[in-house]
Design a protein around this nucleic acid. Structure first.
Lengths: 260, 260
DNA sequence: TATTAACTTTGATTCAGATCAATCAGAGCA
DNA sequence: TGCTCTGATTGATCTGAATCAAAGTTAATA
């Protein structure tokens, strides 16, 4: 009853690129925009990669604080993050705002806009970032030629739905400290999958942005950080986080009814 | 600043079948399982409908309280609801549970399972229901033959993501009464789109299930109902709901900082 | 039709997190 | 170097929703 929960079922995000590209070298029409980092080419052969490469040719930079896309604007392309860190957020006229996700290398942005062909959220860079633009109609066209690409794209969309359901569970039934623990473990895992330390990293977002994502006020986020630090589970120095005891952090997330 | 929010941007669900099937008569291998009600055939010609009909041939009934699918089981098919009412919920080992959605005629279930090919949530009928089973690999195959079907399917998936983001906004930033108002307006709209009254309907779910969906305890849901009734905005008789003043209900949802 | 079980409402009390407020730390800049 | 601005921390207080508890109501089943 009180055993720690398995990692995979509980984290907010699933990685969109668990099986990283196993192709050694790619010729693409855009030499600087290697497909290597992207989430899409998983399991494609060289010729297929070539076809995809012709579509994913346009690279774009977004400076810290800049918009990759804005809610209300016409949708034309998905964006695959090559480097950097972005947030997406939905905004109501009444000022209510909700950060719906934080996104890093290899992840795909813009999926929400396919339905209405209008972006439903803002995507804002939290550090200087680079993305590859993928014109969506072209992606659909080559999906017909490369069924494995289509299948993979469907999985990416589905994974986003699973991720959203996890966040709904978090927002609907977790306490502040549990939410923060989930959040940190999720970041930890995603950093580690990208070859960075799982226990030592810098946050790119403010306490307020974390709060918006987790359905908490910034003061509550700050207090939860301090609490975890007091218990020696993490060390916090402003945006720099060290996880000292990942198992106890998992316990925090796992089950509030456990006596701690 | 305090104007009521436009309906479309604020409701929890978008309908997956706004453009209802405009084809008059369909020959299908499953006469009793007309494609008419389904969300998929939008904009297809007769021949295409025929192809789709061969895929969507298997009909299934689920009695009230029964499972359509269970978390952890292998995914093979999507399910299009022909009639009835279901809930989906994610369940943690520690007993934490979250209703992730309520689903009615024309909606498509199972999208979350595409990513891992294992169902990540339970789908339980809240009243006797009928669904059409759509083997997913077959759907992907004919998507190649019928690009407009593929495009439509992508839109359906994307719409689910948009819906989930709305729920995240609700869970992350709304007060109890606002959440209930959103919920009722959403149901109202979906009933009305299906030809039922938008102001007079029966709930299929318990207060506890509503609470789970809205991130509230059942007592809080009950109190919120009573409060809206005291203000003459709705009339509640157990599961039977009448909306007396839809505009004031929208105000409730719109902006808590409005003086009411 | 009686009996039980499941669901709903309402009240009293408690508590987690919001709000209000003050201080502090770091970054950018004149 | 001091100044300003943004963001982070911490404390005090308040409040909305959770929790605990007791009826009351409806639906299910024998």
């Amino acid at each position: 009853m009180c055993k720690p929960l398995p990692l995979e079922n509980n984290l907010l995000h699933d990685s969109p690129q668990q099986n990283h590209l196993d192709v050694t070298h790619i010729k693409s029409s855009c030499a600087t925009c290697s497909l290597r980092e992207l989430c899409l080419p998983v399991g494609l052969n060289n010729q297929e990669i070539q076809i995809l490469g012709d579509v994913v040719s346009h690279k774009r930079k977004v400076r810290r604080g800049g918009y990759l896309h804005q809610s209300g604007l016409k949708f034309q392309s998905l964006f695959a993050i090559r480097s950097g860190f972005l947030k997406t957020c939905v905004l109501e006229e009444d000022g209510r705002q909700q950060v719906t996700g934080f996104h890093m290398t290899g992840e795909l942005l813009g999926l929400d806009a396919i339905s209405s062909e209008i972006h439903t959220c803002d995507a804002i860079a939290l550090e200087d970032s680079e993305v590859c633009e993928i014109p969506f109609t072209k992606l659909e066209e080559i999906s017909i030629i490369i069924p494995s690409l289509m299948r993979h794209f469907h999985k990416i969309m589905s994974r986003e739905i699973v991720r959203d359901h996890s966040v709904m569970l978090l927002l609907g039934s977790m306490k502040a400290e549990e939410r923060l623990a989930s959040f940190l473990l999720n970041l930890s895992r995603r950093f580690s999958m990208r070859g960075y330390s799982e226990s030592d990293f810098n946050l790119r977002m403010t306490r307020e942005e974390i709060g918006s994502y987790l359905g908490l006020k910034l003061e509550t986020v700050s207090r939860a950080f301090s609490k975890l630090q007091d218990e020696n589970i993490i060390t916090v120095d402003n945006k720099h986080i060290q996880i000292n005891d990942i198992n106890r952090l998992k316990m925090k997330m796992g089950n509030s009814s456990c006596i701690t």
